[in-house]
């Protein structure tokens, strides 16, 4: 029953939303069909809205987004993974939005400092999850090509999924229960999509940690360089 916001927790949730929103924003003008331009942008905008609220709880949103170094970002590695093909983007969405939906549902039901935000976000995220599930079954159970691509994506991203359930300081949730619910849901979806549930490990072997400890994958640095360069080129300017 904490009433003060934990900076660690706010940054973790805020950075997840910020970074995934950025990745989805990269689809603009490149989506496989016009209707998906609109759908992906809707999801990106929801996430960006969540990020702004979360970051503002613990500082200035722009300072946090544009002036932190890579090692200070606390998002999970899953959300920073490059878009890849549409199957990669959809599987990343499935893995993350299922987690985020379960997490926010739990936070919304509690009385912690994130409850008000979670109560609003849980509705948005329910839609993101539905979007990902709809597309997962269509890609998995569509054509041979789409099945293969979906299977590849499913496996490539699998090793980033364990990190989401590690404890975060100040985030009062039952990680094990969350993980069990996530596995049940995601495995069910993959089977419905005629995909094989990957067997590999769900986290990296590096004991130093991962995104929540500020250790990111290589593409993330370039993503930040692009995101931050204009803001950093004009110190102190307002936009």
């Amino acid at each position: 029953m904490t009433t003060t916001v934990s900076t660690t927790a706010a940054l973790a949730l805020g950075d997840d939303a910020l970074v995934l929103s950025h990745r989805l924003g990269e689809w603009a003008g490149h989506a496989p069909v016009l209707e998906e331009e609109v759908a992906l942008a809707n999801i990106a905008l929801d996430l960006l809205g969540q990020a702004r609220v979360l970051l503002s709880l613990v500082g200035d949103e722009d300072e946090l987004a544009y002036l932190r170094e890579e090692r200070a970002f606390r998002n999970v590695q899953l959300v920073e993974q490059p878009n890849g093909d549409f199957a990669h983007t959809i599987l990343r969405q499935l893995y993350f939005s299922t987690y985020q939906h379960l997490l926010y549902a739990e936070l919304a039901a509690g009385d912690g400092p994130f409850a008000p935000l979670a109560a609003k976000a849980v509705k948005e995220v329910a839609y993101h999850r539905d979007h990902a599930e709809q597309w997962t079954v269509r890609l998995g159970d569509g054509t041979d090509e789409s099945h293969e691509r979906a299977q590849r994506a499913c496996e490539a991203l699998w090793r980033f999924t364990g990190e989401m359930f590690r404890p975060v300081e100040g985030l009062d949730v039952d990680g094990a229960a969350l993980e069990a619910a996530w596995l049940e849901s995601v495995e069910g979806m993959l089977r419905r999509a005629t995909l094989t549930v990957p067997e590999g490990p769900r986290s990296g072997a590096w004991r130093a940690g991962a995104g929540r400890q500020g250790l990111h994958t290589e593409p993330f640095g370039r993503m930040l360089a692009e995101m931050q360069h204009l803001h950093r080129s004009h110190p102190g300017a307002s936009w």
């Binding site: 924003g25 960006l48 809205g49 970051l55 722009d62 995101m227 300017a237 936009w239």
Partner: peptide, 11 residues
Amino acid sequence: ITRAPSLRRKA
């Protein structure tokens, strides 16, 4: 979009 200089402008 990926270089917008503030989160408000980006949205």
